[in-house]
Design a protein around this nucleic acid. Structure first.
Length: 260
DNA sequence: GCGACAG
DNA sequence: ATCTTGTCGC
């Protein structure tokens, strides 16, 4: 049928990002966020999408809710979805947000008491080309506080993966240590966080919606048993597990077993 | 032309 | 995102 040129899509997407950015709330809006030990925080959400190797349309959308501070699994939802948007760096939200919102809606309908008080998102928030990454997008459209946690550095607004960056990484001594990701204009868009004593490679944390950067850092660190914070890690593990179970990899090594 | 490119 | 076993080290 009539496929829309990607360049056309991107123009629309850029306008939509600007529109939604007007609804963004940066800063702490919840009581628990002001508490030193996050008193009142009981449920943290994690979201992720996993794919099958040769298929960039079908995906497993995953939502998990973990208890805080125990990080026990309270709820999980795996759902196969068909994505309609391609992956374009800077526009990840248009590919992933619809499925994640649907998962949150299913939770709202079936177990509203389990709605998360904050969601950790696999990707960036304000640390983004136009300061409106996936975590901001999902935050605004869901109304929930969101934090962006990226596993890889996005080189944006003058932040570069150069010798200086690696030297800053080497200076991180222990879990909880950070250094700011500052744009050429001097704004702190996020922070690199050494998430545990054992992990050398930091994660990149930025504000999504309805939370301050300092709170986002403290929260992310307090959710880490390993490098990747538990809510995101569990979402990743469970969605992959779902794919393994329901789509036994019929790859190139085993596909001709039934031929002839 | 070359390098970058969250997931 | 995904392709992939073992291996070195605490």
């Amino acid at each position: 049928m009539s496929a829309k040129p990607v360049e056309e899509l991107i123009k629309e997407w850029e306008r939509e990002q600007v529109r939604l950015k007007g609804m963004l709330q940066v800063g702490d809006t919840e009581d628990w966020q002001r508490s030193p030990c996050f008193a009142g925080l009981e449920r943290v959400g994690g979201v992720d999408l996993s794919f099958i190797k040769g298929d960039d349309v079908k995906a497993c959308a995953q939502l998990v809710i973990l208890s805080y501070p125990d990080m026990k699994l309270l709820y999980e939802d795996s759902q196969m979805v068909a994505l309609d948007a391609p992956y374009v760096a800077g526009y990840l939200a248009f590919r992933e947000t619809p499925s994640l919102l649907q998962a949150l809606n299913r939770l709202e309908e079936t177990q509203p008491a389990l709605m998360p008080q904050v969601v950790l998102v696999d990707g960036n928030g304000l640390f983004h080309y136009r300061e409106f990454g996936l975590a901001c997008h999902l935050g605004v459209l869901s109304g929930l506080p969101c934090v962006g946690v990226a596993k890889n550095l996005l080189q944006v607004q003058g932040v570069v993966r150069d010798e200086e960056h690696f030297s800053q990484i080497n200076a991180l001594q222990k879990g909880g240590d950070t250094f700011p990701l500052t744009s050429e204009s001097g704004r702190v868009l996020g922070k690199a966080l050494r998430s545990s004593d054992k992990s050398t490679k930091p994660v990149y944390v930025s504000v999504g919606h309805r939370i301050s950067l300092d709170t986002a850092i403290r929260l992310t660190h307090s959710c880490c048993r390993y490098r990747v914070p538990e809510p995101i890690r569990q979402a990743d593990i469970l969605s992959r597990e779902y794919l393994r179970k329901h789509f036994p990899s019929a790859d190139l090594q085993t596909q001709d077993a039934g031929e002839r």
